[in-house]
């Protein structure tokens, strides 16, 4: 700790020395610069004076600036400012680690449940909580870093990028849950098959034809899929996945449009606006052309 406290003052002294050296250097350079302009043989006295004046002004401004920066209190202020940056970083990292440890703890708690044997043709005990907690944790702990307000000229583009990162994370989480639900019937079918084979073996009724086992397996698998696919949970997970995917796709397209903007190619957004106009015009044209034909037919009949 002592070493840490001593180091800023050492650094302050070094910076002060460097500032002083740079100040002296610029004083010499400005004098030499002024001499050079006097001896360079430029035509017209006023031109020479203007150049010398601007050289001296520039040198003085730099000297004033370095003089200020070289003052001990300024250097101290700068170091204090630098001290706060690690604090900020530490705060952010601490929050991330806390979130990560929390996530890890929840994973550990849930991990055993995922592999647990579940009852055949029953999907009430599927552990969706794991995926839910991952998503919640992301939304609660990590998402806020992507939502730090963006500033400056590029803020809109930065916002689009962070939105894409956010949407991609959510989509990946929901897709993981969807794929897990899709995998569960395979797991359950394997369990049922094992039980059936054991029972058949005990009864001495094992088939000698591999096709019979396949038929049995596919029938059980189909039954499991039919059960899970009709469940409200599956519909909910499917809906979440679709919603997350459409969000991700929209965010990705937004970023892509931004990237294409400087290129000499029309973006989808621009073309869509055009298609909309064309569609409206075609519809109008259809109505008008039918009206003309109606009137023509009427006149003919009259």
């Amino acid at each position: 700790m002592e070493k840490n406290e001593a180091s800023p003052s050492t650094a302050q002294a070094a910076v002060a020395d460097w500032m002083s050296a740079v100040k002296n250097l610029w004083e010499n350079l400005s004098n030499q610069g002024a001499d050079a302009t006097r001896n360079c043989g430029m035509p017209g006295k006023s031109q020479q004076e203007k150049l010398q004046k601007s050289w001296e002004t520039g040198a003085k401004m730099f000297q004033a600036m370095t003089g200020y920066l070289g003052k001990p209190e300024t250097i101290e202020g700068v170091f204090k400012g630098l001290d706060t940056a690690p604090d900020l970083m530490t705060g952010m990292i601490r929050q991330s680690w806390e979130g990560y440890f929390d996530l890890q703890r929840q994973w550990m708690e849930r991990a055993a449940k995922v592999g647990q044997n579940t009852k055949a043709y029953s999907f009430d005990d599927i552990d969706q909580e794991t995926f839910k907690s991952i998503r919640e944790l992301y939304e609660k702990e990590l998402r806020k870093f992507l939502q730090i307000p963006q500033l400056g000229l590029n803020r809109f583009h930065q916002e689009k990028l962070t939105r894409l990162m956010d949407a991609q994370t959510i989509f990946q989480t929901t897709l993981g849950e969807f794929l897990y639900m899709f995998y569960v019937p395979l797991e359950k079918t394997t369990g049922v098959m094992q039980e059936k084979l054991e029972a058949m073996a005990e009864a001495g009724e094992l088939h000698d034809d591999a096709k019979a086992y396949y038929n049995m397996w596919i029938k059980i698998l189909e039954g499991h899929y039919m059960t899970i696919l009709q469940s409200p949970e599956y519909a909910q997970v499917m809906d979440n996945t679709i919603a997350a995917f459409t969000d991700y796709k929209a965010a990705k397209d937004d970023v892509l449009c931004d990237m294409l903007q400087p290129l000499p190619v029309p973006t989808n957004q621009e073309m869509d606006a055009l298609y909309k106009d064309v569609h409206a015009m075609k519809k109008k044209l259809r109505e008008l052309s039918r009206e003309i034909k109606r009137r023509a037919a009427k006149e003919e009949n009259d």
């Binding site: 009709q230 519909a235 909910q236 809906d239 679709i242 995917f245 459409t246 869509d272």
Partner: peptide, 17 residues
């Protein structure tokens, strides 16, 4: 029928054009 009613499948069309 179940999926069309209970999911936001229709948004897929808008997302892709």
């Amino acid at each position: 029928h179940i999926w069309m009613k209970k999911t936001r499948a229709l948004e897929m069309g808008d997302a892709y054009g």
